[in-house]
Amino acid sequence: MDEVLTVRRWRRYGADRLYVTHETGARVGSVDLQSGEVVADDPVLEARVRRAAQAYLRSDVPELVLPVTSELASIDALDGAGLTAWLGGPDDDRPRDERGSPVGSRLDRLADDGWQAVHDVPLGRQGTVVEHLLVGPGGIFTVTERRHPDSHVRATSRTMHVDGRSVPYLRDARLEAARVQGLLQSAGCAGVAVHAVLVITGDLERDVLDPPQDILVIARHEVPNLFRRLPARLEPARVSAVAQVARRRTTWAR
């Protein structure tokens, strides 16, 4: 019997992604259709994630269910040029910074500094996804990017505006961090504190007299160096333990 994969598109808060899951519900990977970032839970599955995404983009349906051996194997390697043109790929030899350097890739650079990043964390069964969960010496952070490359973004302690229009990004990020904190604590990570980070792609202005207090609002170019400068709060063993819990699917299926 053929192995079955499901591809779904998720568009929210300016993000546009495809999620590939196994018939068991296990996540296989994801594709960011804006930045081109491909994340596979197992690196050997990256080609499979790319081909599943290509099949989805050709199908023009809201959700695609496809047998791996029949559907994906029928996609000729040369036909992958269209997906590579959209997403970039191994044959794209431009420097990473010229390709936009996705936030997830920037966070992964912190590995040598003792940080661990978990990408595309699924919260519950309603399709909510935390873009990045970062665990390291400086603490535990949910990291969410909001892209407004041609807009002015102004942040105060309580409000955020994009070209003068109020957006709920601060509230949503705080709620997300609180939910992640609660689930980690329920999974056995007693006493952990999770803080929210908003990464803004655009012309960011932080109010110097009334800046955000309980949430980090940073520009994309500040990632990853800002995290390297944070004071140490967690021991390496604690970082490893929390990251291990964060990678368990059962932690978030509550």
Rank of each mutant, 00 (worst) to 15 (best):
V194M: 05
E71N: 04
V7T: 08
R238Y: 12
P67T: 09
H152R: 13
D108S: 12
V39H: 05
R206W: 01
G127P: 13
I140R: 02
V197S: 02
L18N: 02
P168T: 09
G127T: 14
R17W: 13
P102D: 03
P211L: 09
D203H: 08
H119Q: 07
R96K: 15
D112I: 15
M160S: 03
R109H: 07
V192Q: 03
L83Y: 06
A241S: 11
V245G: 04
T144K: 11
Y169D: 15
Q116K: 12
R58K: 09
T21N: 03
A73G: 13
P67I: 12
V217I: 13
E98H: 10
R12P: 03
L83F: 09
L78V: 12
A52M: 06
R248F: 12
D214H: 15
R158Q: 10
A219G: 15
V130K: 01
H22C: 02
S166N: 08
H22W: 14
G136M: 05
E98Y: 02
A26N: 06
R96S: 14
L45A: 14
L204Y: 00
V197L: 04
A52P: 02
T69M: 07
V192K: 05
P149A: 13
L230I: 13
R50W: 00
L123R: 10
R220M: 08
A241V: 07
H161S: 12
V135K: 04
S30K: 01
V65L: 12
N225P: 12
D112Q: 11
L226F: 14
E23R: 05
R171F: 08
L175N: 15
D207G: 04
E63W: 08
V28I: 10
S157D: 09
R233L: 15
R27M: 03
V68Y: 04
A196F: 06
Q54H: 11
D41Y: 05
T6H: 05
S186M: 10
S240I: 07
L133D: 03
L216F: 10
V7R: 00
S240Y: 02
P211H: 09
R171M: 12
L198G: 03
D76I: 08
C189Y: 05
